[in-house]
Design a protein around this nucleic acid. Structure first.
Lengths: 202, 202
DNA sequence: CCATTTATTTAGTGATCGATACAGAATGGA
DNA sequence: TCCATTCTGTATCGATCACTAAATAAATGG
């Protein structure tokens, strides 16, 4: 088990790849874009990550872990579901326009449409969004169990509403919306809370 | 002023191009995809439309006229702003998952991210979305003038909320959401109406 | 020391990208 | 009928795409 050791930091290279995919999306990011951003040559990239799609998969995983941790904590650790959603959504409103990284959510923006041969990449993205949706619904169900959300509330419908709004905020962020505007949109969405709770699915 | 007449239906070819751009997006649609769908060869395409970007511009214009007319009417012609928004949003909920065409809104999906050299294409898209947002705000202001929306309502913030939700619905449509689910999300959004009206900008 | 293993750089692969040169075909006007 | 004009299909253009063969470099094990 010997061999020449890798001369670059794999984690740092992956983070650089994540940044490019986040900014440009999967298909518009070329191998030369990636090798340039990662500071390595193509054969090193392929030896370390397999292929472009596998690299994207790892980048998306990293994104979920690195960028998803904070909002997940806010949602889960708030005393009530309502406070959790408000805190999580407000965090995203601020974070989506943070100039330290590309605007919006990578899991929404990096591959929504594209060529048929990249359907599997869009599947990775869709699965990621689905996990977020499920976490939203689970938090509402927990609120029902805890008693801070009225019984009979349609958790899935409510989760879908907030997930839909959050996904729209990524488009808004790319359109140049400000932190203030996104926060106002979150406030509007939270104003819908009382109108939704307690309403069963039709 | 003579010359060989065009041997194909320009409007039909443009409509076919719109369909491909709508399905795959701008960058993932190749010239060979377009010529195949339009039933013409590349030189005919370039003679009739100029270049890929100009063709996309015309396709986006056609999309706005063809697909935007019905929801625009619903928004404008309802007796109150609230009824207008409800009708327009419900129309989109149904139309976004109509199997007769690609899911979601072309003006949201066809070019959100991409290569820097296609920034102008994303600008066309952004302008289109901005026009919709402005129409939303104008309808709310009209409601204030008519008296069905309380004075002091922040029309722009309210418009941004519904535009954001609508944009998110395009993502949901691509994720396989059903008509029923999208309609439920619209109902949730309309439940926020009373919580928003009368609230000035902070 | 040498052998093995893995990573590196260089220099490409065939395929496809958007866009065109060119020659022939089809029209209206003279 | 002949010209000027415009559109047509064929056959490309150079550039770039994702990806890799081959030779060299750097590590460990013996």
């Amino acid at each position: 088990m010997a061999g020449r050791p890798r001369s670059f930091d794999r984690a740092a290279a992956l983070k650089a790849a994540m940044g490019v995919f986040w900014q440009r999306g999967y298909e518009a990011t070329s191998l030369s874009d990636l090798t340039k951003a990662m500071g390595i040559n193509a054969p090193s990239l392929y030896a370390a990550f397999g292929c472009k799609e596998a690299l994207f998969g790892e980048a998306l995983e990293l994104y979920q872990q690195a960028e998803g941790a904070a909002p997940r904590r806010l949602l889960e650790e708030a005393p009530t579901a309502r406070e959790g959603f408000a805190a999580m959504l407000r965090f995203h409103a601020v974070n989506y326009v943070d100039p330290a990284h590309p605007p919006g959510c990578m899991a929404v923006l990096a591959a929504i449409v594209g060529a048929p041969e990249n359907k599997s990449v869009r599947g990775l993205m869709s699965t990621t969004r689905r996990r977020a949706l499920d976490a939203f619904a689970a938090r509402i169900r927990r609120g029902i169990a805890t008693g801070d959300v009225p019984a009979g509330t349609d958790a899935m419908a409510m989760a879908a509403f907030y997930a839909t709004l959050l996904q729209g905020m990524s488009i808004q962020a790319r359109d140049g919306a400000t932190k203030k505007q996104l926060l106002a949109t979150v406030d509007s969405a939270m104003a819908a809370w009382d109108g939704m709770v307690g309403k069963k699915a039709r």
